[in-house]
């Protein structure tokens, strides 16, 4: 359901307008038909109005996703802004759905809308959370997998914002590799 959001001069503008998407897995329909745009926002206050209005990720059914992408970028590999890119992937253990998932996802969203990746924030396309029986996943998508300096900077800052310890590593996968292999075999391009 679309959430109407009023514009106001008193609100704090964001650098980018963002679009929240919702995916529900209905196997009788094509993948793209299961993807819905929820709403777009471009102020801090409208972000919170939306966030506080929708279900927390941990309460979604298995097979559902939320995606937050910059306006104009669709949350799929095929989009021109994504197709040469990749993702920093956080995989969670099953029991973490009730402890870490919502915190990690909120911190991911705040990193995006707050433009917390310094001069490399333009490389960020969006973020996706997948609710899955096998284990939930959160990822930040960037636009160019070959931009090593930008990608690794984003990974380091992201890891720091999630409060992950130095012993924990996270990996970056190019979408081109994910698209052609089963996810468990996708090669990791960078690690931080």
């Amino acid at each position: 359901q679309e959430v109407p959001l009023a514009e106001s001069p008193d609100k704090h503008p964001l650098q980018n307008r963002w679009a929240l998407w919702f995916f529900r897995n209905d196997k009788n329909r094509m993948w793209q038909a299961n993807l819905r745009l929820v709403t777009k926002f471009s102020t801090v206050e409208d972000f919170w109005a939306l966030y506080d209005h929708i279900k927390p990720a941990s309460k979604l059914s298995c097979g559902c996703d939320y995606s937050l992408f910059k306006d104009g970028i669709e949350p799929m590999w095929e989009d021109n802004q994504n197709k040469r890119g990749g993702r920093w992937l956080i995989t969670l253990a099953k029991q973490q759905r009730h402890t870490k998932l919502d915190c990690f996802w909120l911190d991911t969203l705040l990193c995006l809308i707050g433009e917390m990746f310094d001069n490399y924030s333009d490389e960020v396309c969006g973020a996706v959370i997948n609710i899955r029986t096998k284990g939930d996943k959160i990822a930040i998508w960037t636009r160019e997998a070959e931009h090593q300096e930008a990608v690794t900077h984003i990974g380091r800052v992201y890891k720091e914002h999630l409060g992950l310890s130095q012993e924990v590593t996270i990996g970056y996968q190019a979408h081109a590799d994910t698209a052609t292999k089963s996810s468990s075999l996708t090669k990791t391009k960078f690690v931080v």
Binding site: H12, P13, L14, Q15, V44, E45, F47, W48, D52, D107, L110, I113, G114, E115, M116, S121, H161
Partner: peptide
């Protein structure tokens, strides 16, 4: 132009402000 950057603390403070 200048990028609009907000830190986590500021964003969290905006959550419940009137």
């Amino acid at each position: 132009g200048t990028r609009i950057i907000y830190d986590r603390k500021f964003l969290m403070e905006c959550r419940n402000s009137p």
